[in-house]
């Protein structure tokens, strides 16, 4: 319904009245308008929809979600988590404790039941 994808702000410039950014989406860079996120700084993660950043990602919350999901299946889920890890990983690497403490999930090949 509404594709919105997380990316990292790698360049900010004021272009006329609009604050614009180059946002890196895992190796793809595209221009996005920051008019609706005036506080955003270089290195922040934002969600971009039709060329506009509409939300800044909260890394702490992203990590919480990751941990909950990892507990469901600590091994098999990592690949699917790719883009979420991308959002949260750079400043907050995966805490090994969370994975170790998690109950053993089904083997990755079988996937979640």
């Amino acid at each position: 319904m509404c594709l919105g994808i997380p990316g990292k702000v790698v360049e900010i410039r004021d272009d006329g009245p609009l604050r614009m950014a180059r946002v890196d989406f895992g190796g793809v860079r595209k221009e996005a308008c920051l008019a609706y996120l005036p506080e955003v700084q270089l290195g922040d993660y934002v969600i971009v929809h039709v060329g506009f950043a509409i939300s800044q990602l909260d890394e702490e919350e992203a990590m919480k979600t990751l941990e909950i999901l990892r507990m469901l299946d600590p091994e098999g889920m990592d690949m699917e988590l790719g883009s979420m890890v991308e959002e949260a990983a750079p400043k907050a690497p995966r805490p090994p404790a969370a994975a170790e403490a998690a109950p053993a999930g089904p083997p990755p090949a079988s996937g979640p039941a």
Binding site: D14, D15, G16, P17, L18, R19, M20, A35, P38
Partner: peptide, 16 residues
């Protein structure tokens, strides 16, 4: 006028 206080007060053109 522009919706947000512009760093460039002269109403300049759209980005690029």
């Amino acid at each position: 006028t522009e919706p947000f206080a512009a760093p460039d007060p002269a109403g300049s053109a759209l980005p690029d």
